[in-house]
Write a protein that binds this DNA or RNA. Structure first.
Lengths: 328, 328
DNA sequence: ATGAAAGCGCTAACAA
DNA sequence: TTGTTAGCGCTTTCAT
C-alpha cells in the first residue's frame, strides 16, 4: 500500500491548518477563498479522510455489523441484501460475518465485531443466548432480524408475522378439506409450531403430534425428516415446510417416493424463492418480506434501536400456485 | 455505547505500564508473574483491544473488502461464502458491498472501502475499468473473482475455467447429435462466447450468429431473450445458458411455450444451484466451483496478490442430469 | 523485564 | 474565520 495522503498533506498544500481542512471537509464554516483552496488541494491529492482516525477520535466506530447463519441461503441472502441497501444509503459500511447457526461461531463473530469497535449490529441470531452477553455488556445496539433469542426480549426485533402467515396457510389447507396436515420445522423456532397448533385448535382439527417434525439445519437432516414423515404416515395429505431448505427437502422426498403433488400430497413452503415457480407443479408458498426485514432492522439500528420498540412484525403473503389441491 | 475498557484500565488494574500489557497480549516477553497479573486483569475487565487503535498505529487497516454484484444471486452468494470462510479462518473482518453490476455504484463502494482504510479487496467486478482506477492508484491489493476487467490484466484473478467447461458442454451436446445449439449469455462477458464459437468450429459445426443471444442482468430481459429465441427459431434443438438467471429464464420460457425438455429442446446451464435438481426434468449443468473461487481469491489477496500470479483457473464439472437428450 | 513517551490521522476546544 | 493543541487506544523504540 502506497503512503496514504493525510489531512496534513492537504493542509500543507493549501497553506492552511489541519483544523481548517477538517472543518471545510465536514461542511463547517470557512471563507469561500479558503474553502476553495482546500477543496482544490484535496482533489489534487485525491485525499480521502481516514475513517480510522475519525472513528478513533470520535470514540465510536461507524459501520454496522451484519450477522447471518448462512449467506448462501436465499432467505438470509435477501435479508442481507436489505441490510446492505439500507446501510449503503446511510453511507455506513457493513462488516459481515456468518455463524452457521452455531452459537460458538456466533460468539466468535460477536467478539470480532466488538474488537472492530462496531457498535451497531443487525443479526439473524442462532437462538442461543450466551453469545449475546458480551455484546449487551459492551452496550452495543443490536437489532434482531427474522428471529429473536429467548432471554433477550429487550432487544428489538424485526420479524415476519409467522402467526398470521401460518394461520392463512393452515386455513387454506383446511378449506381444501385437509385434516391430516404435517408441519416440518427447523429446530429451536418455537413460534411457528405454536402458531400451527393454535390454528389447528381454532379450526377444530385434532393435533397429531407425530405429524410435527423437526430437521436440523442440514440438507440431509431435512431430507431424512421429510422422507421419514412420508413413509411412516402415508395417510398424510398435506405438509407445511418451515423454510426453503425444508421445502426443498420435501419436494425432493416426494419426488423420490413417487408422490404426486398435489394429488397425493399438498405442499406449502414458508419462503418464496425463484425455484418455487420452476417446480412442477409450481409451489404454493407463504412469502416473508425477507429484504424488508433486513432493511427495516437496519433502519431501526441506525435510529439507535428505538427506545420502546420491542418487535415489529411484517406481513407475509400467501402465494397460491400449483402445489395444493383438494383432499383426496 | 458504554465506556470502552482500554489498555490503560488493564495496566492500572494490573499495576503495570501499558506497554507491558501490549506486549503480554501480543505474545511478547514478560516475566511469568507479570504475564499472570496482566492476563487476570484483562479477563476481569473483559478487555478487548481496539482494532481501531491498533490499526491506526500500525498504519494498515486490517480487514478485507468484498464486492459482489448481487448477494441474492446464488453464484455470488457462494463466492461470498468462500471469501467469508477464508477471511474468518485468517481472523480478518470483511467489509462488504454490493454493486448491482453498475459501474457507478461500484465506484462508490470502492471509494467507501478506500475511506475505511481497507487495503485488500476481493471483487466480482462489473467489467468496467474506471471504478478501479482509484483503487490501484491508492495501491491496494485487489484480486478479482469469477470475472476480470479489461484493461487491468495485471490484477490477478481467480476464475472458473469456462473454456474447458464450455468445450465439455458443447462436445456433450454435439455427441448427442445436436447441431443447432444456441448460447444465451450475459452481457460483457467475452470469454464464454469465444469459447462457444471456438468449440463449434473445432467440431466442424457451423456457427449461426442468430443463435448467440444476450440478456441484460435482469430477470425480464433474460426471459425475453430466451423466449424470443425459442419463438424465432423453432429449429433450435439445444441451448446453453451462461448463468443461473439465464438458465432460470430458459426453463421458464420453455415451460411457458410448452416445449418439452429434453424431447423438444435440450438445456445446459452454467452454474449448479439447488433447484437444478428440483426441476422436472432435473437440469444438466456445468458446475463452477463458486465457493472455491471466493476462497482461493481470498487466500491470494491475503498473500498480497502473488507477485507473478495473473490468473488461476479452477476446473468446472459437467453434471449430467435429465435435461439433455438425443437430437430429435 | 519493564516503563515512559512518541506518534498513527483525525476532530473539537480553545485561542487568536 | 483560522490555527494550535490535546488527545482517542494502541504499538514500538529507547531508556532504565
Amino acid at each position: 500500500m502506497r503512503e496514504r495522503t493525510t489531512i496534513k498533506d492537504v493542509a500543507e498544500l493549501a497553506g492552511v491548518g489541519v483544523a481548517t481542512v477538517s472543518r471545510v471537509l465536514s461542511g463547517g464554516s470557512a471563507s469561500p477563498q479558503t474553502r476553495e483552496r482546500v477543496l482544490a488541494a484535496a482533489a489534487q491529492l485525491d485525499y480521502r479522510p481516514s475513517a480510522l482516525g475519525r472513528n478513533l477520535r470520535k470514540r465510536r466506530t461507524g459501520g454496522i455489523g451484519l450477522l447471518v447463519p448462512d449467506i448462501t441461503d436465499p432467505f438470509h441472502s435477501r435479508v442481507a441484501d436489505g441490510v446492505l441497501a439500507c446501510a449503503h444509503s446511510a453511507g455506513e459500511p457493513v462488516i459481515m460475518g456468518v455463524t452457521g447457526d452455531d452459537p460458538e461461531s456466533e460468539s466468535e463473530v460477536v467478539g470480532m465485531l466488538l474488537e472492530q469497535g462496531v457498535d451497531r449490529v443487525v443479526a439473524v441470531p442462532s437462538g442461543e443466548a450466551e453469545p449475546w452477553a458480551p455484546a449487551v455488556r459492551a452496550g452495543l445496539t443490536v437489532v434482531f432480524a427474522a428471529r429473536r433469542t429467548a432471554g433477550y426480549d429487550e432487544i428489538p426485533a424485526v420479524l415476519a408475522d409467522v402467526r398470521s402467515g401460518m394461520r392463512t396457510a393452515v386455513e387454506y389447507l383446511v378449506g381444501l378439506g385437509h385434516r391430516r396436515i404435517a408441519y416440518l420445522g427447523g429446530r429451536g423456532q418455537a413460534e411457528p409450531v405454536a402458531a400451527f397448533r393454535d390454528t389447528l385448535t381454532a379450526l377444530n382439527v385434532p393435533i397429531d403430534e407425530e405429524l410435527i417434525v423437526f430437521g436440523r439445519a442440514t440438507r440431509d437432516s431435512a431430507y431424512a425428516a421429510a422422507s421419514g414423515l412420508f413413509q411412516h404416515r402415508p395417510d398424510l395429505t398435506a405438509l407445511i415446510a418451515g423454510d426453503n431448505m425444508l421445502g426443498e427437502a420435501a419436494v425432493l422426498a416426494a419426488n423420490e417416493l413417487d408422490l404426486r403433488v398435489p394429488r397425493d400430497i399438498s405442499l406449502i413452503m414458508f419462503d418464496d424463492v425463484p425455484w418455487a415457480e420452476l417446480c412442477a407443479p409450481p409451489l404454493t408458498v407463504v412469502a416473508p418480506p425477507a429484504r424488508d426485514i433486513g432493511y427495516r432492522a437496519t433502519e431501526l439500528v441506525l435510529r439507535g434501536g428505538g427506545r420502546r420498540t420491542r418487535a415489529v412484525r411484517l406481513p407475509t403473503e400467501l402465494i397460491v400456485r400449483g402445489s395444493c389441491g383438494p383432499c383426496r
